[in-house]
Design a protein around this nucleic acid. Structure first.
Lengths: 204, 204
DNA sequence: GATGAAGCGGAGCGGCGCTCCGATTAGTAT
DNA sequence: ATACTAATCGGAGCGCCGCTCCGCTTCATC
């Protein structure tokens, strides 16, 4: 027993009791595993069982399912958010940065079973998840979009929120259907965003 | 009373008993009403109650939820399918026809609560619905797309299935969010589809 | 050790999809 | 009109789920 409990320790130790912290971690680990195998819609009972705790414990640490999902993927969302400014500095053009960032975002969504579905579907149960994604990523997307507009790469008028939501929507239900690859459609969207000159051309 | 039961009658009378036909109609009507107010995910119990029949009756006439949804919207799907060739003949260009057809499709999806969600979301429960839409509308979309490619309006290489699915996805979750209008994104997609010339331009 | 509270766990409630089978007809033959 | 039979009906029942609530356990402290 070293002095892990002391307030002078380096860890903030926001939680008080040791078993509570252990359990929270166990739930997080179990949830990550279950999400991979059964999607983010997996029954809470199953996650609790896998973590070796009761359902009450899961609900205490993560009152809503969105809280659990958020906690599991927080690192990756954070990475994605931080990649925005970096890409803007590194990439050859704001448009290239936007495209690469969107690719990152899509890769993230596509590799998590049902994450995109959960993000958009019914507004009630996952509202907090939706909110968290938006809080963290919408400013990044806005920055990239504005930069691309200012550079003349794309035409103005596109709402960042609408774009992000559209991208999220396009990533829905990709599982196990080789005929559907959201990336191709998103590439098409980006083409539509580009500035072709003063005029759209005759649409009819 | 009269000889409506005779097999020599003109009506094919595919169903045998009169009450069965009445009940089927009652369920259809009730389902249409409930879908409007509560979306296509509404509990079967509620639909049965509204129709004044037992759940068994609903399930007998429409074994899966998809069958019920399909039956309710069959007319409109049919109309949409028939509009394809007509637009191709009437519109100024194949591309214009494609755009107008897509607008029809989007209007249809957007005005039914949760229809787009059901179409795409989890593959299991609504598989038959997905299939029906595809059987009926994919050939139409393919025809329009091919015509537009042949006319040089759009670039080749786009898969009709992917396009339809993308459009369906973009229509998901539009309910009560004024910030999101799938039509704007679909317009962007169409722009991306257009033939700008030999080259995409340097997007990197 | 004693003690108080923080934390735990699962029984229980309401809701849902779907099935199954005894009760109820509609239609027919007499 | 009556009897008969098979088609049809209806809802009780089962399993699964989300979520809550509260008596019991265990940790941290004194």
């Amino acid at each position: 027993m070293s002095m892990e409990s002391g307030p002078a320790g380096k860890a903030p130790a926001r939680s008080r009791r040791a078993d509570a912290q252990r359990n929270e971690q166990a739930v997080l680990t179990a949830a990550a595993e279950v999400f991979v195998s059964s999607g983010v819609d997996a029954p809470i009972r199953r996650i609790a069982a896998r973590a070796g705790v009761g359902m009450g414990t899961v609900y205490r640490h993560f009152p809503t399912r969105a809280d659990l999902v958020t906690a599991v993927y927080r690192h990756q969302i954070e990475e994605c958010a931080e990649a925005g400014p970096r890409l803007l500095a590194e990439a050859g053009s704001p448009f290239a940065a936007l495209r690469q960032w969107i690719n990152l975002f899509v890769d993230f969504l596509v590799t998590k079973h049902g994450l995109a579905d959960a993000l958009q579907s019914d507004s009630s149960r996952f509202a907090a998840l939706h909110t968290y994604f938006l809080d963290r990523l919408l400013p990044v997307c806005t920055q990239l979009l504005d930069a691309a507009v200012e550079a003349g790469d794309i035409r103005p008028g596109t709402q960042p929120y609408e774009l992000m939501r559209g991208i999220g929507n396009l990533c829905i239900g990709r599982d196990s259907d080789p005929r559907y690859d959201p990336r191709r459609l998103i590439e098409l969207l980006l083409r539509g965003l580009r500035h072709p000159g003063p005029d759209t051309g005759p649409g009819r």
